[in-house]
Design a protein around this nucleic acid. Structure first.
Length: 824
DNA sequence: TTTGGTGTGGTCTGGA
DNA sequence: TCCAGACCACACC
């Protein structure tokens, strides 16, 4: 039979078993736009066994005759065994590679042999078959690969729908080509009908400005297609997606909303929804935190998953709704339509064109978000070797772990086993270790501040001090004093490089190279976007390594490693502080890896002194460690602690020479404060940093009056808080829990993880008694908002100028006398 | 089961 | 009624 060769972008992978033969399926797209599925039936499932010393031969012999009978009377045997040399930690070892017939046998064989006296340890038995394949063949998702093979047999061919199918005889990496994956975004609008969610609209947006709304009530919207009913809508949706044949189907929260609804409704109508290239319906496999809705080949990426987990810390918005995220990341304005309006419109079948437009807009902004975010997901895919549909649902721990596993495999190092739940529990119970050092600031206004920070402090410590579970207290260095951890009896090997430091060093090196390249690349070009995504992926994974070492679920867990990293960190920041003092600086503040300095002699030139200091610090730093000059700030405010004495850590505001504000820790940057108090505080901070304390005071007074006279709309008074657990599991009932419980009684569903918005309403009782979700609030408690929202937020900045609450609370002019009179 | 520790501050709770 | 300590959420790095 004729042999073919195809070069294609690898987008997805899975495996199936036919006639007891496991077959890896690689889904992709050729450069000329044809879909392809390449099958490989030559890869064999396996895991490793480490025999007890001298027991290798016996173990091998015993395994040969092993027969396992399962509950279903199936007999499982081992396909074959091989001896193989690998590195365990830093030691070389000879292991037995145990092959099974199908992947599903591996856990059963592993369990069956666990009591064999010749067996010491088992490794790499929980790596999913197709992931093992990609790892062993060095194939990276979202890169081009070249496969040679022949026409598959019909039964195999029939498992998928694709322009090209190929039974692989050989496969390898190849030169990268230009191909931008085709993205399609869709969105549903639903209405509650009895206990079911009924789909009333579906919209699709894809490249070439393709816009489509599917409906079954005439709406006179130019992009609408009017169908007979919901069943036809579903059919048309599937048909359109298949016809458009995207590589990526993106949704915003499709895992828990759009996809399950499509699935449920299609069950009701018995119209299977096959959106992927395998011939299966959408599958849902609960994976703890999430239940991914998976379509194969045409992969479903839920942007919400990635944004809410990996991008969470970079998102400023109080809520994670599509509109809020689009507003923040795309600067897109909302289409104004409230849920109540939609319900009304649907009920009376009016303004349906607006409804359709609204629905389409959601698909459009999902598409635009995809364009922005998918490059980052793809870059992480290439870095970790995991398929994008997995990457978009990963946590930081999983990203680091994937990268570490891939690196270990490349270096012929055995991947440590995942801890058992028992081990995880034990690890969690151990006392946590000491972390970073934070300088207590002197409250007040400071002028001309220079800010420095270490470039990637913890990653560079891990690399520079060879911090790794296997180099910790090594026997070869025993009494070595050259790499001792400050303030402890710990040390790390100085002879052999650890696996983690090596893996991390390569990430850091690559990132530096990319950042250099970016400087000579024109921004807003595809090349630049790609470089940005690459460095983003490298940074994301590097920064999570330290946490991963101390993470109870980690395969490379070693508490003392995390402890050592922070101990070195504290040592370095102290050294940097000490040196600053010898350079005529006063240390204003510092946290973990940063120092804020000002000159004691203010006649000196700050920039000059800063540069000189920087040069000296860096001349003393080992390895790849480096202190960086962040810049200078015209003024900065640090405030008193509310309780106790001294300055508050992690709360400050800076203004630079261009008038830009940097606000950290204050109510302004917290979502669990009302918009009114946040806005007021920001204004106060800006005025105070511009030496306009009087204006700040009068601004607060105005706000107080607005509150007193009931002029403030409820919208500005809502407080966002997330409900972290089931409403029955709280020991203490705070305002947000009280509000949520009341709402639940009115039939509103409250799920753990949800963010609610509540108001403290007028009335009597405790604050919790008065808390109501904003949609149920009719008024607000003036006293609460003045005394517990506006004044505390404003006073934070004003109390350093000895202004009192009383001065802010009174209308009109305030004198020292009347203030005194009020107190007594 | 879903990277780490440090830190602030609001509200509730229960005992004096 | 007052107050300390617990609980809770969210920020910083």
């Amino acid at each position: 039979m004729l042999s073919h060769t195809h070069t294609f972008l690898l987008i997805d992978a899975d495996y199936t078993v036919i006639d007891n033969i496991p077959i890896v399926r690689l889904y992709g797209r050729t450069k000329d736009g044809r879909s392809i599925v390449a099958f490989d039936n030559t890869f064999e499932p396996y895991f490793y066994a480490l025999p007890k010393p001298g027991a290798l031969k016996t173990l091998q012999k015993n395994l040969k005759t092993l027969k396992i009978t399962t509950d279903t009377d199936e007999t499982i045997t081992i396909k074959k065994t091989e001896t193989i040399k690998k590195t365990i930690g830093t030691e070389n070892a000879t292991l037995l590679k145990i092959y099974s017939h199908i992947p599903g046998h591996i856990p059963k064989i592993k369990d069956a042999i666990k009591d064999m006296p010749e067996l010491d340890k088992k490794f790499e038995f929980d790596i999913l078959f197709f992931r093992r394949y990609l790892m062993d063949k060095n194939l990276l998702p979202m890169t081009f690969i070249e496969a040679t093979g022949k026409e598959p047999e019909q039964p195999l061919k029939d498992t998928v729908q694709s322009d090209i199918t190929l039974l692989i005889t050989s496969i390898k990496n190849t030169k990268q080509q230009n191909y931008t994956p085709k993205i399609l975004s869709f969105d549903l609008e639903t209405m509650q009908e009895g206990i079911a969610q009924k789909i009333i609209l579906a919209s699709i947006y894809t490249q070439g400005n393709y816009k489509k709304v599917l409906a079954y009530v005439e709406d006179n919207y130019p992009h609408s297609t009017i169908l007979k009913d919901e069943k036809e809508l579903l059919q048309k949706l599937a048909e359109t997606i298949i016809k458009k044949d995207p590589d990526i189907i993106t949704t915003y929260n499709g895992d828990s909303f759009d996809m399950p609804i499509i699935h449920d409704r299609s069950k009701k109508y018995k119209t299977p929804m096959i959106l992927g290239r395998d011939k299966r319906e959408i599958t849902f496999h609960s994976r703890g935190r999430t239940t991914p809705a998976v379509t194969r080949g045409r992969i479903h990426i839920d942007l919400y998953q990635f944004i809410s987990v990996i991008m969470r810390a970079t998102i400023k918005s109080e809520v994670m709704t599509l509109n809020a995220i689009a507003a923040e990341l795309l600067d897109e304005r909302k289409k104004e339509m409230t849920w109540d309006q939609m319900k009304e419109n649907w009920k009376h079948k009016k303004n349906l064109d607006k409804f359709a437009e609204y629905c389409l807009h959601d698909s459009l902004i999902t598409y635009k978000l995809s364009k922005l975010i998918l490059p980052n997901i793809f870059a992480l895919s290439r870095l970790t070797g995991q398929i994008p549909s997995d990457v978009c649902r990963m946590t930081y721990g999983q990203l680091v772990e994937s990268y570490a596993m891939k690196s270990a495999s490349e270096k012929n190092i055995i991947i440590p086993n995942r801890p058992t739940s028992e081990t995880i529990r034990e690890r969690r119970q151990i006392e946590s270790f000491t972390g970073a050092f934070v300088v207590e600031p002197k409250p007040g206004l400071h002028e001309n501040i220079a800010v420095f920070d270490f470039r990637s402090l913890y990653p560079s410590i891990i690399v520079s001090h060879n911090i790794d579970p296997c180099t910790f207290m090594c026997s070869c260095c025993k009494t070595s004093d050259t790499n001792r951890v400050p303030g402890t009896d710990y040390y790390f090997c100085t002879k052999k490089n650890g696996f983690i430091p090596r893996a991390l060093a390569s990430l850091i090196k690559k990132r530096i190279a990319i950042k250099t390249k970016m400087k000579t690349t024109k921004p807003a070009t595809p090349k630049y976007t790609d470089l940005y995504a690459q460095q983003y992926a490298l940074k994301t994974v590097s920064n999570a390594f330290y946490g991963y070492l101390g993470f109870a679920g980690s395969r490379w867990y070693r508490r003392q490693c995390g402890e050592s990293v922070t101990a070195f960190g504290r040592d370095y920041i102290h050294k940097v502080i000490d040196l600053a003092k010898t350079h005529g600086f006063e240390v204003v503040y510092g946290d973990t890896d940063s120092v804020f300095l000002k000159l004691i002699d203010t006649r000196q030139d700050l920039e000059k002194a800063a540069k000189k200091y920087l040069k000296e610090v860096n001349s003393h730093l080992p390895g790849i460690m480096e202190l960086e000059f962040e810049g200078t700030f015209r003024r900065g405010i640090f405030v008193k602690k509310k309780t106790g004495t001294g300055g508050a850590k992690k709360r400050y505001a800076l203004i630079d020479n261009e008038g830009n504000l940097t606000i950290r820790g204050f109510e302004k940057v917290r979502r669990d404060w009302s918009k009114l108090s946040k806005d007021t505080q920001e204004k106060v901070l800006r005025l105070v940093l511009s030496n306009q304390v009087d204006d700040a005071v009068s601004h607060v007074k105005e706000v107080v009056i607005r509150l007193k006279t009931g002029q403030v709309p409820l919208e500005e008074l809502g407080i966002y808080t997330s409900v972290k657990r089931d409403l029955n599991d709280y020991e203490q009932i705070g305002p947000h829990v009280a509000a949520a419980r009341k709402a639940q009684k009115r039939g509103i569903q409250i799920i753990p993880g949800q963010t609610i918005k509540y108001i403290i309403t007028a009335g009597r009782g405790t604050i919790s008694d008065k808390a109501e979700l904003i949609q149920f609030a009719k008024d607000y408690d003036k006293d609460y908002y003045i005394k517990k929202q506006i004044l505390p937020a404003a006073m934070r900045a004003l109390s350093v100028f000895n202004i009192t609450e009383e001065e802010l609370m009174c209308e009109g002019k305030q004198t020292a006398l009347s203030s005194f009179a009020k107190k007594s």
